[in-house]
Structure formats: structure tokens, C-alpha cells
Design a protein around this nucleic acid. Structure first.
Lengths: 215, 215, 215, 215
DNA sequence: TATGAATGAGCCTTCATTCAT
DNA sequence: TATGAATGAAGGCTCATTCAT
């Protein structure tokens, strides 16, 4: 469950960072195209711009690449979300902005999200646990964002509803990447965000607000 | 996009049917446990109860097995949904029953759903298209079920909202299988169904109904 | 320490036996020429007359080949020695015959002995233990052969001397293979056997015998 | 057959000497533990206390390390034996002392002897020849030591017997290292030396001596 | 039809060696 | 001189697929 340190033979940490970035970038593209299993380590090395030998100076096994990719993506999202969390003011408008922002980042990182989403299960149990923990943390950020609105009296939901709604928000984000083949025939990102948010919030807004807003 | 005929060397159609059932059953379990790529054809043959040679009398390639599995699962669900569709009366209550029924079948076939869900991407383009077409059909059934309610005036949604809601219903079903690791800590199936349906319908029910129901 | 069963995927035991014989024969030659580590599994397969895939139907790892080779050689020698043991009559003449016979078989199987001798250490601990146990058994046969002569009063040695002499007999046999490069400049097999036996027995023969024999 | 000069890029001979000593020391331990083939050059460099790049400033190939190790060990033994040779007085007692001394040094350098003994065959033909020549020289020292006793009339042996006995003495020394796993259950070094010498000399001592010693 | 032995392309990984700094 | 990152040939092993029986 702890952050798994991927072993590198190379000592220079800057270099490790740099090479891994190259690696992740190349790997994401490949994984996206052919999936983790159909991608060979040689292809990863080549895409990263170095030799197979060099690749293995920075990882211990092919699975490490997948872990690195997943970790990287989660890290990015979590960072963004964390920020969003701190900006949050407990208003429904704020929640909406956070959601919009989250879906936008997913849209920007489509490939990465899709890869992470489709290949996590190829991780070993260890790595998987760690990654899932991260996912729970992200969902829980949404949970808290919603809860703030509830606390402020802007929306009415009990605890379990808050939790489920957080999951839904999260999954609707992923959806935009894994069901893109179907969704983007009908919606562009803006529409998708607006419609999903509307459907989500319809009916849970406190009467007072609804009235003041509708009329 | 047409239904792909998987070639069998064996002529006796009854036998083909029988053997493929065995095959699918064994494969689902294996794919569930280890994923498509980590499962070997030998294992599939063994799990199906015959030899590797025999396996290849009924398929042409390993991927055929995956296709057969996916096709089988979709077929099952589609059949069920079709039935549901015919029973539908355009009331919100009916829609709720259909959703509940759909989620229940997903719960009953967890393994299969998960497999299909995680491994479809391993299908060749051809097979994938066919399978995705099926998925669209299923979503479209929900679309029609919702539309009937709209037509009847029970709920208020425009076309795009109907479509998105259909997708959501579908994805929330899958969610119950692919996020089970997180969800079933908090909800059992009944709760999940009830809460999701509530969140879904809150606010889109026509005022009249809401009033008559709430007061 | 137990006899290690080397796993074969192929069920037909006769075939396994046959293929392994081919394998061992090819491997011995190669190991002799280049040593275990410098021999590739592909070379072994080729020398055995089948493909690399087939090789791995009969073993699980390269080390299995070495084990099979060692086991085979020991088995051969042990069988021979066992026989010799049963024929033994407790006379010094008998002991001499046994030694001569042992050295002759070593001479006949030079390559095998050398391989076994030089490569055993490459075995895993498990396999090594088993193989060393066999070696102890062989030494102990000589120990018993000598002891019989002692019991019969033909030679005079205490327990520890008997044991050491058994080791010496054994090692002198191996010597004929691993120091052949030096020894066969000076001696042919017959000479070697005679001289070693003479040096060995000189002085340990009971006086009575010596006298009656010498004079 | 000539002493092979191992090429070093570094010019400073003192440094070369120093670095090689470090190298040999580290390598012996590693070779002992894992054998030559399973030891990597990186491990050797690390054990020697410098980097892989530096290692290659003092050798040209991994095999050079093995050669250096073997050469070093032989050199040590030969030096010792040479000394012994000069001290020798042609008495059986003297021979016994030399043997005892030889076996003691083997005991002291167990690891080195074992390594040399098990890994020489990994040397290239060239290096092997050179090293075997050294071994012949060592055996021949024993030959001469024995011959002196024969010349002095202390023991009775013909030329071929002298030669074989020299080989035996040498091999019994090695034996103490390569059969240690079996021998040291029964004997400690002192016993081993005494028993081997006894068995060796029994019966070849000139009658006169035997009588004078026994009675 | 059913079997399972045989095949070999191809994968992941290691490690001796080089070379720019 | 010393370093250690980079290289890529080569090795062990797997597994989808075929085919003779």
C-alpha cells in the first residue's frame, strides 16, 4: 500500500527523473495503441528514445513501466484535485467548477486516463492496492466537496448519497474517456460537462435555491 | 460489423454449440482470474474439459475465444433487456423496475461483466466494432425506455439528456462490477439500486408527480 | 534430498524416457566441450535432435538438464557398483577386481564423468544434496568392500583408515578423468589401475599374506 | 604457454599491482560463493572497491580476472613449495613435513583452492595451458622430493610409481578442499594429514626403517 | 472427431564492454 | 585516472498454433 519505489540502477536522480519521463511518455502512447500486453519492452525503449539496456537501468521489470505510468497519471490528477479542494468555497457553483475542471483535465489527458483505466488490472497486487488507494483518495475529495455544500445547506443529501454521488462524478469523468467512441458523436466536452452537471444537480438543490434560480 | 462467424472445423452444429458453451464457461473463469493475455489456450482447453487439439477444432485463434465470450455475454444481456423493453409501459415505475432488473443481472453475472468490460479492448477491430454495436443497442433500449416516460409526460428531458441518461444508467450498471471493490464496502445491491435510481430521477420527475408523491 | 522428479509436460512415459536419453547424450557432449554455462538451451535441443520448444516439453529449466545428466551418470555407476558389491567375496583379489572394474567404467565414460565432476556445483542446493548423497553411497560401497577384507583378516586397517581409503579409491578413479591430461602421458589405463592398486595395498596386507605371496 | 601478460591501460605499475590485489581478493570471495559464470563484472568491481569503468582499466575481459586469480593462487603455492623443496633433506621425515605443510596451506586457503580448482576450465586454452604447466611444476616438486628419498634408500619405488605418488599427494591435497563436505565430518586437518601420510607410506618404507621404527 | 507432441517466433531480461565526461 | 550511463547481443523460456495419428 505504501508508495512503491521503483528501483533504478542509475544513481543520478535528475537523470532518473528525466529518463522516466521519456519512458512514461513513450509508454502511454504505446499502451494506448496496443495495450500493455501487446507492447514489448523494446518498443517502449525505442519510443522513449533509448536502448533496451538503458530501459532496464531505470526499471526492474516491464510491469514497473506500467506502475510508473499509472502512478504518474494519478499523481497529476491528485495534485490538480487537491488544489481544487483548497479553492472550494462550499457553494454549488464551486462544486460545478471543480467538476468542470476535473472533466477538462481528463479530456486533456485522454490517452493517459484510458491507459490507466484499462491496464491497471495488469499491475501486481501490491502496486494495484497502492493505485486503488489513490483512487479512493480522489473520490473522497469529491465527497468532501459535496459535503461542504450539504453543510452549507445548498444541497440536501444524506451521507450515503454523498458518497455515491462522489463515485458518480468520478466515473462520469472516466466515462468521457472510455466511452468517448459513443459519447463524442453526440456531445462535445462543454455539452457533456454541462449536461452531466445538470442531471447530477437537478433535484438535489435546496428548494430555496431552485426557486430563486428558476424564476 | 456483421455478426462474425467463428469458424469451426467440426460440422455437427449441435456439437459445436455444446463445445463452445464448455469453452466459454471455462474461459470466463480464467479470464476473470488472470485476464485474457495471461490465460493460455491450454488452460482454456483444460478448463473446458478437452484437449488443446480439440479446442482448435472449434476456433481459429485464441482471440476467437474472447469474441465468443463477449458475444455470449452481450447476447444474454440483450435478450433480457429486450424482454424488459417489451414489458415496459412508459411509467417511471416501469423504468425503475427495468433498471433494477438490469443491475440485478449484472450482479448475478459479475464475473462475466467484468471480463467483458476489461478485455473487450483486446478484440480485433472487427470484433470490437461488432461488440460495440451491441452495446449501443443496449444503451438505446434504455434510451427508448426513458423516451417513453418523457412522451407520457412523466419526466421532463430533452433528447440529449435522454441519451446521456441512458448512458449513465448503463455505466452505473457496469460500475457495480468494476468498482465493486469500493462500492460494496458501503452498499449492498439493494441499496445501490435504490440510491442510484433516486439520484437519477430526483428533479427530472414532472412537478405534478413529485407533488402527488411527496405530499 | 529426495530423488527430484523433473517435470515433463508430455504424458507418454516411454517417450519421455526416450527424449531424455537423446537430451542427455547431446548435453553431455556439449557440456564436455564448453561447460554447462557456455552451452545454450538451443544447442542442447539441437544436439538432442529436436526444437527448443520440444526441449521444454521435457524439462522445466536448463538446470534440469544438468540434473538429468548427473543423475543418469550416477545411476549408471551406482548400478555397476551395486553389482560388484554383490559379487564381492571379501578377498583382496576381489577388492582389486572391483577397483579395476570401477576405473574401467570411468575410462569408458570419460566425458560423462568429467562433466559431472566439473559441473555439479552448478546444480541448485536441492539437486546438489541429492547428487552428493549418491556419491556418499558409492564411497560407502567401497568402504564396505574394504571392511569385508578387514573382517576376513586379509588387511589391517582401523575404521577411519577404511573410510579414508574408500575416499581415495573413489578420487583416484575421478582423477583418471580430471587429470587425464597429465596422467595419460605416462600411463595407460592398465598401468594406472595396477600401479594405483599396488600403492594402495602395499603395506596394508596382513604380514602372513605378504610373506606367503612375496616369498 | 608463456606467462600471459594481462593488459592494463593504466601505466603506473604500483597502482596496477595494488588494484589487481583488490580485484583478486574480491573476486575470490565471489567466485567461491557463486562461481565464475554467475559472478558479474559489476560485482567484482564493487567487491574490489571501485567502479566498473575502473575495473576495465586494469583488465581487458572478465576472463582476465579469472586468470589473475588462478595465477595468483598458483604463484603463492609454488613459492611455498619451492621453499619447502630447498629445505628438503631427502628423509622420509622431511617428505612428511613437506606434505603436512602443503596440506596446511591448502586448508588455510580453502576458498582460493576451491575456486581455482572448480573454475580453471573456464579459462581460455591459452591461459589454461599456462596454468596447467604450473600445476605440473608443482607435482614435479613432489616427484623430486620423493625421488630424493628413493635415492637415499629410504623408500623403494620405481620411476613411474614415484610419479604417480606425486600426483596422489597433490590430489589428496586438493581433495581436502573439494571433498571437504564429506571428509570433515570424519577428520580434522591433523587427522587427515596423519592418516593420508600413513596410508601413503605404509609398505613403501624400506624394511630396515620399518623394523627400526616398529620395534 | 479427438488427441497431444512438436514447432519456432518472439518475449523479457541480463550483463560484458565501451566511451564521454 | 576514475566514473557510471549507455549499449545491444544473446540467453532462457513461453505459448499459440499445427498436424500426424
Amino acid at each position: 500500500m505504501e508508495k512503491r519505489e521503483v528501483h533504478a540502477s542509475v544513481k543520478d536522480e535528475r537523470l532518473v527523473e528525466k529518463r522516466r519521463k521519456q519512458m512514461i511518455k513513450g509508454a502511454v502512447t504505446l499502451f494506448r495503441e496496443k495495450g500493455f500486453h501487446r507492447t514489448t519492452t523494446r518498443e517502449i525503449a525505442k519510443a522513449a528514445g533509448f536502448s533496451i539496456g538503458t530501459l532496464y537501468e531505470y526499471i526492474r521489470s516491464k510491469e514497473d513501466v506500467l506502475y510508473l505510468v499509472c502512478d504518474y497519471i494519478y499523481e497529476q490528477f491528485q495534485e490538480n484535485l487537491q488544489e481544487e479542494f483548497h479553492k472550494s468555497d462550499g457553494t454549488v457553483e464551486g462544486l460545478k467548477r471543480s467538476i468542470a475542471y476535473f472533466y477538462q483535465s481528463i479530456d486533456e489527458r485522454q490517452d493517459e486516463v484510458l491507459v490507466m483505466y484499462q491496464e491497471v488490472k495488469a499491475l501486481t497486487k501490491d502496486a494495484l492496492s497502492y493505485v486503488l488507494k489513490k483512487e479512493i483518495e480522489m473520490v473522497s475529495i469529491f465527497e468532501q466537496l459535496i459535503q461542504r455544500c450539504v453543510d452549507k445547506g445548498e444541497i440536501e443529501l444524506n451521507e450515503k448519497e454523498v458518497c455515491l454521488m462522489a463515485h458518480n462524478i468520478f466515473v462520469h469523468g472516466q466515462m468521457w474517456s472510455f466511452r468517448r467512441w459513443a459519447l463524442n458523436k453526440t456531445y462535445n466536452l462543454e455539452e457533456y460537462i454541462e449536461l452531466q452537471t445538470d442531471l447530477l444537480l437537478k433535484g438535489i438543490l435546496n428548494k430555496r435555491d431552485v426557486e430563486s434560480k428558476t424564476f
